[in-house]
Design a protein around this nucleic acid. Structure first.
Lengths: 143, 143
DNA sequence: TCAAGTTTGACAATGTGTTGTCGTTTTACT
DNA sequence: AGTAAAACGACAACACATTGTCAAACTTGA
């Protein structure tokens, strides 16, 4: 296999893995009334409240798609929009008590889930993979 | 970083890379009137004509989404539906002359594209990454 | 200070993919 | 053979994300 064929294989596998991970996330979060997309947004405000645009930048997505999810979560009382001292219209998105509880319940599922997935994978191989994927992300972000 | 944190990082990076790769594929194929999704379907019939369901299985997608793309490509005269001796209604999807030409033009872009992406990545690291991603795909396919 | 450029939220159109359902065709088993 | 199960194409509804546009809010620099 040439390096270029290997790369093509990797690209196709990433497409495939992406789809599988979304399905997994949907399954894990479905009992709590969430989805992968909602979970991601909830995770983005884990440490501090953020504006929609900030979340979009961190996740590498458009404002519009994040806004849609945020509005849904607000209707479900999972997040709330708080006034932003630095910007009159760009509200800060913050988890409600309910949102925090849901996120914590989901976080508890993660260790078992990742342990099962990593069963046949050495710590070193995982580290290499993470480094390579991160490098590719950086490369394509620049181009 | 615990192994479980590393895995979470990897998941988020895979989401990110997936989005970037789709954008890249769209950009590369846009001048030819194609998209990432159309390119993928075209690639799936590189070696031999396939039915929609066969393509969907290899790509890990639903019949329906592949069918939609296939119908579009047929309207654009990039593929054609051929009678399948083994199945009365499941037509074989085959590239037309135009489809073959488009696919070959795209294939020519790949080496330069992958070389640039792999610039800072050793052959060994790429091989490890491919193996890990493939293992994860297999794991989640089973579950 | 004030004008130009950027960021932001809102709205609309569109592309890609999923689930679900239906009727038909094919396959597998007894 | 004949019937139950599976695969297939078609259609519809919906989730997620993108691009594009607009007006309002903010930032920057002369």
């Amino acid at each position: 296999m040439t390096e270029h064929e290997g790369f093509t294989q990797l690209v196709l596998s990433v497409f495939r893995l992406n789809g599988l991970l979304i399905t997994e996330g949907d399954s894990l979060s479905q009992p709590l009334g969430l989805t992968s997309a909602r979970w991601k947004v909830l995770g983005a405000i884990e440490n501090a409240p953020q504006t929609v645009s900030q979340i979009a930048r961190t996740m590498g997505q458009t404002r519009q798609s994040v806004q849609r999810i945020a509005n849904e979560l607000e209707k479900l009382a999972i997040v709330s929009f708080e006034d932003n001292p630095d910007h009159k219209t760009a509200k800060l998105i913050q988890r409600t008590e309910r949102g925090t509880e849901l996120f914590e319940r989901l976080s508890e599922l993660l260790p078992a889930w990742s342990d099962a997935a990593l069963e046949d994978i050495t710590e070193e191989a995982l580290a290499t993979t993470l480094k390579v994927v991160a490098k590719l992300v950086t490369h394509f972000e620049k181009s």
